[in-house]
């Protein structure tokens, strides 16, 4: 079991220093604060949370775009902390990255052929033939056929769904074992979202890819991942297998998220949602204890607002950072 763990994140912290007048430090934004989890080869993990919860920073840290403040990321048995600048670059190339805004993620002045050739050129695929072969395969994998029709197109000539498929093709063209996708469909129309997600799912199964799927949309989670991880205020509040999670949401924040998600149902109009008010915590000065306690209706005075909750095991593989389960 241990040997097919692809990515191990241990006590990861990514802080950003906030400065006043350009040099006086006034504290740190704790975007990712003590996050630990594992990802197995071929597994799809959803990271769910609202904007500003640190999920995008987590993704970028895993991708090697930010250096962690402390903690460790072990990829394929090697710790990225020990990498030199050149090795970090090589490491980055081993992971695929799919971003939220497909149009912004593609250089507008390059055509599709060029866009897909760039990672190959940078990573030493020099032969023209080899490049053509890989580009063709990537596009075919994403059902962008006939390939010749798409190669000379510029991003603005493609629809949102097609742009996102190019982004995914680019992410997988180097044959990564892990793809990090940050809200890959949130800017797309409902009717194409599923198509993109299903394509990603197919790729994942075909190539035995591990996928980190970052989203704020809980309703897609069940269809496209095995495991889920909920972040709030820079921390993981709950993680577990998807079905177990949906059947038995444990952390009050997770429960609120589920409550807030609407399925299309005419009965919705008759009931009010039981969701907490308030705002997500500041990451510069997070509240002491559990970061959700100011909004939580189960708050235990003297505990939740004092001490940070550790992870409590709810069931096998399912844990929640909440004092309710002590």
């Amino acid at each position: 079991m241990q040997n097919n763990v692809l990515l191990e994140v241990n006590n990861l912290k990514t802080y950003f220093e906030m400065k006043k007048w350009g040099f006086v430090s006034i504290g740190h934004v704790r975007a990712v604060d003590n996050v630990s989890f594992n990802l197995k080869q071929g597994e799809a993990l959803s990271v769910v949370g609202e904007s500003g919860c640190g999920k995008t920073t987590l993704a970028r840290t895993i991708l090697g775009l930010y250096r962690p403040t402390s903690g460790d990321i072990v990829y394929d048995g090697k710790s990225i902390n020990e990498f030199s600048k050149g090795e970090i670059k090589a490491y980055r190339a081993q992971l695929g990255y799919v971003q939220q805004d497909p149009y912004g993620a593609l250089p507008p002045f390059m055509d599709v052929r060029r866009i897909l050739a760039e990672p190959l050129i940078i990573n030493g695929v020099k032969s023209r033939q080899e490049q053509e072969k890989l580009i063709e395969r990537a596009l075919t994998d994403l059902k962008m056929t006939p390939v010749e029709d798409f190669l000379p197109k510029f991003p603005h000539m493609l629809s949102g769904g097609q742009q996102q498929r190019i982004v995914i093709a680019r992410a997988k063209i180097l044959g990564p074992k892990l793809i990090v996708s940050d809200e890959p469909v949130s800017m797309l129309d409902a009717s194409v979202r599923i198509e993109i997600l299903q394509l990603m799912r197919q790729l994942q199964e075909e190539y035995d890819l591990a996928v980190i799927y970052i989203t704020h949309d809980l309703s897609t989670v069940r269809y496209f991942s095995e495991r889920i991880l909920v972040m709030y205020g820079g921390k993981i509040v709950e993680q577990g297998p998807v079905q177990e999670f949906l059947d038995n949401p444990s952390h009050p924040y997770t429960q609120a998220l589920l409550e807030a998600t609407s399925d299309p149902d005419p009965k919705n109009a008759e009931t009010f949602k039981k969701v907490p008010g308030g705002e997500p915590p500041s990451l510069l000065n997070p509240p002491p204890g559990c970061r959700f306690h100011p909004r939580c209706s189960y708050m235990i005075e003297g505990l939740c607002n004092r001490e940070e909750p550790p992870d409590f095991i709810i069931k096998e593989n399912h844990s929640a950072a909440c004092w309710l389960y002590r």
Partner: peptide, 29 residues
């Protein structure tokens, strides 16, 4: 509207909405 859309587009659009509380066959256009 939400339970039995008639127009093929509405039907497909509804089928493309993922749901949290039930596991359904998703479709796209």
């Amino acid at each position: 509207f939400f339970t039995e859309p008639l127009h093929p587009y509405a039907e497909k659009l509804m089928a493309s909405v993922p749901t949290l509380r039930e596991d359904k066959e998703l479709d796209f256009i």
